[in-house]
Amino acid sequence: MTRLDQSFAALADPTRRAIIARLAEGEASVQDLARPFAISQPAISRHLKVLEEAGLIETRIDGTSRPRRLKPQAVAALWDWLGQYRSLWEEAFRRLDAVLDDLPDAETPNPEPQTPKGPRHDP
């Protein structure tokens, strides 16, 4: 498995995404992370291991406790990337708007019955 596959696999699981979301608020113990989920602590530990192997989180050693935290650079890139994904469609559609604006109307067929649905968008 490549690192990339590992990241995809790590993020494909809803529990692991929830763990990432929780860690985005700050570091947390394994017990804290297990609390919101109806699964055992060993099961949470397995999820944490997957996330750690994918390079998304790390363990801080603090005396006898082992809080988990997001790897700061990883989370910055990850959040940025998710935002990027959401905006990809809209960026493409804005370019499509421009293509449409440049197209001549010549081949427009007969008017069709109007079916107003939802808000009209005029760029």
Partner: peptide, 18 residues
């Protein structure tokens, strides 16, 4: 679903260990 290249580029930029 879209923008796979950007996703790849960004994932590859992640400081992945291992």
């Amino acid at each position: 679903t879209d923008g796979m290249a950007e996703v790849y580029a960004r994932l590859e930029a992640l400081p992945l260990s291992g």
